[in-house]
Design a binder for these strands. Sequence first.
DNA 1: CTACTTGCAAACTCTTTGCACACCA
DNA 2: TGGTGTGCAAAGAGTTTGCAAGTAG
Lengths: 168, 168
Amino acid sequence: MSDSFALEAVDVALSPMERFEEYLKSKGKRITQPRRILIEHVFSHHEHFDADALIDELSHQSKGSDRVSRPTVYRTLNELVESGLLRKMEIGGRAVYEHDYGYPDHDHLYCTQCQNLIEFQSAELKELRDQVARLHQFRATGHRFIINGVCDECQKKSRRKKRRIDLI
Amino acid sequence: MSDSFALEAVDVALSPMERFEEYLKSKGKRITQPRRILIEHVFSHHEHFDADALIDELSHQSKGSDRVSRPTVYRTLNELVESGLLRKMEIGGRAVYEHDYGYPDHDHLYCTQCQNLIEFQSAELKELRDQVARLHQFRATGHRFIINGVCDECQKKSRRKKRRIDLI
DNA sequence: CTACTTGCAAACTCTTTGCACACCA
DNA sequence: TGGTGTGCAAAGAGTTTGCAAGTAG
């Protein structure tokens, strides 16, 4: 899954690993090898991903040293979300994760053809959100805004295909 | 699940049942008893609901005359979405449906405490959406905007509870 | 040492599908 | 009558859980 890399990373004092260790300590949890492997892996790429991809990469590989089991992948993903390192969203019935820590707030364009998520930022949206919330005496803690449609790439592909058909 | 009823229904020429019959005919599908029961039931209340609620109400009841089986509930829900009568959204991993036909476009505030969906309309949001899409050469076909947080009701409840604890 | 973690297998939830019978047009 | 639709049971996808063995602190 390739993404748009238009957004700049935010400067953060601690690395994701360090931040996760803080979180674990604060909860009386332990810094274990599987947790280390998983977070290392997750923060080495900057993409949207789902649990299945992670399981393919970490669990299905036969070499034993840096293998992480399916349940541990799920358990750790939940911890990463709870600790604020990852953001989780549901698209088409499955959970999709992305970096949250060290990454600016943003929303997404979702191409229903190629399934790509394109990120964008909008200050106006945040204002609009708070304005709506205020109007309803609602204490907003977050939001999810996804614009569905067809990305530039896929539109071009469709046009090319259509032209080919027209020639017949 | 009780909702806010702030939104006015839009005038439509055909009843949902009639509209669905049109759709079925156009697809060479048949107007059957289970489909009639389901749509009648769905459009008699004006609430957000999930497949499970419908199955409880239509499938688990033992009396045989207006019973609809689980698979037929799912099959018909998909047809209702495809025909434009219902809108489907995913919240917390499960599908939630609401009336689309004869109901204005809107978005939602989602209370993470009581799970209620509160509807709101915003023309600005639509403009914002189209503006963002244009900027990315994206052909927008729809969007989903959900503001998460705590509704007025639940904030009041929390405050009452907090006060009781403070008194101890 | 002791409580927290892991991996395995199995359970669970939600949704879809194969198939024989039923039914609408 | 012929093709659709239905209900049943069972399969699937995605995720969680119980438990015995392993390991961090």
